[in-house]
Computed example of a mutant assay.
Amino acid sequence: MSTFVLVHGAWHGAWCWERLTPELERRGHRVVAVDLPSDDPAATFDDYAEAVVAAMGAATDPIVVGHSLSGNVLPLVARRAPVRHAVYLCAMIPDPGRSQSDQERAGGMTDPAYLKGLRRTDGCTVWADADLARELLYQDCAADVAAAAVARLRPQAYGPPTEVWPSGPLPAVPATAIVCAEDRILHPDWSRRVAPERLTAAVLELPGGHSPFLSRPAELAEALHGLG
Rank of each mutant, 00 (worst) to 15 (best):
S2Q: 14
T3S: 02
T3M: 09
F4W: 06
V5W: 01
V7C: 06
H12P: 09
G13K: 08
A14M: 08
W15G: 05
E18Q: 15
R19M: 12
R19W: 14
T21D: 06
P22K: 13
R26L: 08
R26I: 07
G28T: 14
V31I: 10
V32D: 12
V32A: 12
A33H: 09
V34Y: 08
D35R: 04
L36V: 15
D39F: 03
P41K: 06
P41S: 10
P41A: 01
A43D: 08
T44S: 15
F45I: 00
D46E: 12
D46P: 05
D47A: 12
Y48M: 08
V53E: 14
A54S: 10
G57L: 04
A59M: 11
V64T: 06
V64Q: 03
V64I: 07
H67L: 11
H67R: 07
L69H: 05
L69K: 00
S70R: 00
N72P: 00
N72Y: 11
V73K: 04
L76N: 07
L76G: 03
V77S: 05
V77H: 01
R80K: 11
P82R: 04
V83F: 09
V83I: 12
H85Y: 02
A86S: 14
A86E: 14
V87T: 08
Y88I: 00
I93P: 04
P94L: 07
S99R: 06
Q100L: 14
Q100K: 01
D102M: 01
E104T: 03
R105H: 10
R105L: 06
A106Y: 06
M109W: 08
D111N: 15
A113W: 08
K116N: 13
G117D: 11
L118K: 14
R119F: 11
C124A: 13
V126C: 00
D131I: 06
D131E: 15
L132Q: 13
L132H: 06
A133L: 12
L137R: 03
L137V: 07
L137H: 05
Q139F: 13
D140H: 03
A142V: 03
V145A: 09
A148S: 12
A148R: 11
V150Y: 03
R152S: 06
R154D: 09
P155D: 10
G159A: 03
P161V: 04
T162F: 00
E163Q: 10
E163V: 00
P166I: 09
L170V: 11
L170R: 01
A172N: 08
T176G: 02
A177I: 04
A177F: 00
I178C: 02
R184T: 05
H187Y: 09
P188K: 12
P188W: 03
D189F: 00
S191L: 10
R192Y: 12
R192L: 04
V194I: 15
E197W: 00
R198Q: 13
A202V: 07
A202E: 13
V203H: 11
E205C: 06
G208R: 10
G209D: 15
F213T: 04
E219I: 09
E222G: 03
L224T: 14
L224P: 10
H225E: 14
